[in-house]
Amino acid sequence: MEKLTYRSDAFRREHCVKNGIDPAEHCCLDMAWFISKPIEWDSQGANPVVMWISSWDEYRIEISHAGNAATRIYFCPWCGARLPQSKHSDWHERLNALGFNDPGEQDIPMEFTTDKWWRHGA
């Protein structure tokens, strides 16, 4: 039987920051903790509990499926807060305006691979 490892809030905040996640920019410390890719259970391996696609400000949970699949979530599983509206369409529109018609196959500006473009108005 696996034992859930509990860690202090200070430890979790430090882990988040060390992994490039600012807890203040997310709805709660639990969400920040889980998107910072901690290993909570031995059987979890490298599988994230929740994924955050920073360039789209979109949260997803992996689903069991042949291959790589995930479903978008709209509310935080821990605090219940409504999560931000996805910036996926805005991302495509901005890149299209810059002349990128297939951003998945093109070398796009670095700021569009993270949350920099929408946080800092790139």
Rank of each mutant, 00 (worst) to 15 (best):
M1S: 07
M1V: 07
E2K: 04
L4K: 09
L4I: 11
Y6D: 08
Y6V: 08
R7T: 03
S8E: 03
D9G: 02
D9F: 02
A10D: 10
R13N: 01
K18N: 08
G20Q: 06
P23T: 00
E25G: 01
E25H: 02
H26R: 05
C28F: 06
C28H: 07
W33A: 00
F34W: 13
F34M: 11
I35P: 00
S36F: 00
K37E: 06
P38I: 07
P38Y: 05
W41K: 08
W41I: 08
A46K: 07
N47T: 10
P48D: 07
M51T: 06
I53K: 04
S54W: 02
S54G: 02
S55M: 09
W56V: 05
W56I: 07
D57R: 06
E58H: 00
I61G: 03
I63Y: 03
S64A: 09
H65P: 01
G67P: 00
G67T: 01
N68T: 03
A69N: 04
Y74A: 11
R82V: 14
Q85K: 13
S86L: 10
S86E: 09
K87M: 15
S89A: 15
D90W: 10
W91M: 10
E93R: 12
R94C: 15
G99E: 09
F100Q: 06
N101S: 15
G104C: 08
D107E: 13
I108A: 09
I108R: 10
M110Q: 15
M110W: 10
E111S: 14
T113A: 14
W118I: 13
W118R: 12
W118A: 11
W118Y: 13
R119M: 11
A122D: 13
